[in-house]
Amino acid sequence: MAMSFFDQFASPSYLGIPLIAIAIALPWVLFPLPSLRWVNNRLITIQGWLINRFTNQLMLPLNTGGHKWALLLASLMVFLITINMLGLLPYTFTPTTQLSLNMGLAIPLWLATVIIGLRNQPTVALGDLLPEGTPLPLIPVLIIIETISLFIRPLALGVRLTANLTAGHLLIQLIATAVFVLLPMMPTVAILTATVLFLLTLLEVAVAMIQAYVFVLLLSLYLQENV
């Protein structure tokens, strides 16, 4: 049985239940609701602090019109970062490596920013398609290029998340396989490789957080152009 390195990304199903549904539905027990009393425990305090500081930082460059998105964008950050981080645990399935999930999040949110721009300030939204001070012969070409770059944004948003997580999981699996293969032959090299594997795992933890942040940050930038 030839195991492909890409088999880890195949959406598994156990007892007839697709595990992607479990992996999306269950992690939220890690976010307990704060009680109505004043005193919280440490977990809730640090979660609340992170959520509030993040929302504050994200909303700083936005106009007040865009602040309605604070809850949505903070929720998106929590959603992505939780799924990305839990996916790094061994023997877990990561829903955010699936292109369909990422595009399912990217396209509606991007479309919402564009529709808001076209509805509330159509002149500015259409004006974004042509930078000021363009030489006359370049105008038709530039409008086409800007239109393409506008419509390619959701694609880039979804593919970026998929590609980053896929590449990270693949690298971890490749190097872990190398450690096991090298161990009986060259133990010293295997130990060195295991060190690299450890460092790579640290990097992937960082990537899981950074990519969730980049997804939300880019959406907030698209929103900024349209409010």
């Binding site: 992607i20 976010f31 929590v78 959603f79 369909s100 595009m103």
Partner: peptide
Amino acid sequence: QLNPAPWFTILVFSWMIFLAIIPTKVMGH
């Protein structure tokens, strides 16, 4: 991971979780 196979189910289910569960958790803070 590039196979879009049950893309509509994934879309509906992930948005259902995303809109029903997480905003209440965030608003709690």
